[in-house]
């Protein structure tokens, strides 16, 4: 019976999928034509200035070990393809997920024997942007492994929890009211497809954590410290929520 029903179930699933198209929209999808044009043109996208810098740093030996990223990882176009689309990823030794910036700094301290780069420093943004650039167009595919379940649950809880003096959750804007105006801005769904992003308001490149802190300050909540476990859990939940959407780093956003 079960055996006979299987094709029917498969057919029903196909119909259901066709009836409910993907309603997820990235920041790029809802951006105006000027911002899209700026992002798409490699000479007009200021994020590429950091990518260029990252490319230089990639090949430059550093630290007590006097090794460059390229000495281990080789040509980033090959070895870093799709990597940013898989972060945050689980680190078995630390038994927690690390985001891309933390992973870069872990590599620096363990393998290059160098000082970790400061959060939001030009060099860390540059290396992250260079690595993320290699995943352009590839779908977000964070790990669905069992060890990560508790972190995903924490991230989801944080996303849905009201906070700050305005007493709003992320979900109330980005799930329930996306597409509407918040003062002069269009509320996006909050998919982290293009980080690090060049945000016109910042006139600079910035990480997802900077963006999250920005949102939290707007709610008049106390923002997470850079690298706090909650921040990583929220980043991880956002990536899981955007699973399958194409990466467009370094993105340009208003």
């Amino acid at each position: 019976m079960n055996f006979l029903l299987r094709p029917l179930v498969a057919l029903a699933t196909t119909i259901a999928l066709a009836a409910a198209p993907d309603e997820r929209r990235s920041g790029y999808d809802i951006a105006g034509p000027e911002i899209r044009a700026m992002q798409d043109d490699d000479t007009a996208n200021p994020g590429n200035l950091w990518v260029l810098q990252g490319e230089t740093l990639w090949g430059k030996p550093t630290g007590a070990a006097d090794r460059s990223c390229a000495d281990c990882h080789g040509d980033a176009q090959m070895t870093m393809k799709g990597v940013a689309a898989r972060y945050p990823a689980f680190d078995a030794v630390l038994a927690r997920p690390l985001d891309l910036e933390q992973r870069i700094n872990q590599c620096r301290t363990e393998h290059q024997k160098a000082e970790p780069l400061a959060w939001e420093s030009e060099d860390l943004l540059a290396v992250t942007a260079f690595v993320a650039r290699q995943s352009r167009g590839l779908p977000i595919t964070v790990s669905a492994s069992l060890e990560l379940r508790p972190f995903l649950a924490l991230g989801k809880q944080l996303f849905e929890q009201r906070e700050g003096q305005l007493n709003l959750s992320c979900s109330q804007c980005h799930d329930d009211n996306w597409g509407k105006q918040l003062a002069g801005n269009l509320i996006p769904q909050g998919h982290p497809t293009g980080y690090p992003i060049y945000r016109l308001q910042w006139q600079s490149l910035g990480s997802l954590q900077r963006r999250l802190r920005n949102c939290m300050t707007g709610l008049r909540a106390e923002p997470f410290e850079y690298g706090a476990p909650q921040a990583i859990a929220l980043e991880f939940y956002l990536m899981e929520r955007a699973r399958g959407m194409p990466m467009d780093a370094p993105a340009v956003r208003p």
């Binding site: 000479t43 590429n48 200035l49 810098q53």
Partner: peptide, 8 residues
């Protein structure tokens, strides 16, 4: 000095 991108 600074990074530059030129397209021509």
């Amino acid at each position: 000095m600074a990074r530059v991108l030129i397209n021509l």
